[in-house]
């Protein structure tokens, strides 16, 4: 296999410049064309004129494949049965169906990983100390999506909650707090709008 090093030069068709342009191989983060996920820090051919990624060498394929496999793997956690009931009730309250559960979870995880002011991660850890955080773990929550693993890892950093299961449990309890207990009007409106446009 021909191995490219950072700094190697070549030429390629650049779709941004709409012409053949000289290129240099550099380390780049490259998104997937479906908008879900990014391959981080791989060697790619970059257009010298506009800076866009125009080529990838076969040596970067294993890194690309790894990210695709992680995208497809669901994030899972075993939780007490009442947490599934919380999610189903919240989903029913917002959309009239239990099919909205995955979207509610992804909405919360994504918003909190972005340090959103309305859906804030700031007191998430406190929910783990509540009575509702306890119980035999007899059911499973499974969340799929290109960005979910990335968002959960970001949230772990923001909240200092180390385990994925604890992140998911605390998110469920926050959903209970916002939607079913305190009935936070701003969050409920945002989620109802999402439900109306997607279901």
């Amino acid at each position: 296999m021909k191995i490219y090093k950072v700094g190697d030069t070549s030429k390629a068709v650049c779709y941004t410049c709409k012409a053949v342009k000289p290129t240099t191989f550099k380390l780049r983060d490259i998104p997937f064309s479906d908008g879900e996920g990014v391959v981080k820090n791989v060697i790619a051919g970059v257009c010298d004129a506009c800076g866009e990624v125009v080529a990838t060498p076969p040596q970067s394929t294993p890194s690309i494949k790894k990210v695709i496999e992680e995208k497809r793997k669901p994030v899972e956690a075993r939780v007490p049965a009442h947490m599934i009931d919380i999610l189903n009730c919240a989903s029913y309250e917002l959309s009239g169906t239990v099919d909205f559960v995955p979207t509610i979870l992804k909405f919360y995880i994504h918003k909190m990983s972005s340090n959103d002011k309305v859906v804030s991660p700031s007191k998430l850890q406190l929910f783990l100390g509540s009575e509702l955080a306890t119980g035999k773990k007899v059911k499973r929550i499974s969340i799929k999506g290109g960005k979910i693993l990335q968002d959960i890892n970001t949230l772990k950093g923001l909240t200092k909650i180390e385990s994925t299961t604890d992140i998911i449990k605390s998110v469920v309890l926050k959903i209970n707090n916002d939607i079913l207990t305190k009935k936070n009007k701003r969050v409920i409106k945002q989620l109802k709008d999402v439900a109306a446009s997607t279901l």
């Binding site: 941004t16 490259i30 997937f32 064309s33 391959v39 990624v53 125009v54 080529a55 990838t56 060498p57």
Partner: peptide, 12 residues
Amino acid sequence: NYLHEARSSISE
């Protein structure tokens, strides 16, 4: 000894 075209992203 080949490359893959990329239009600023990776296409599946």
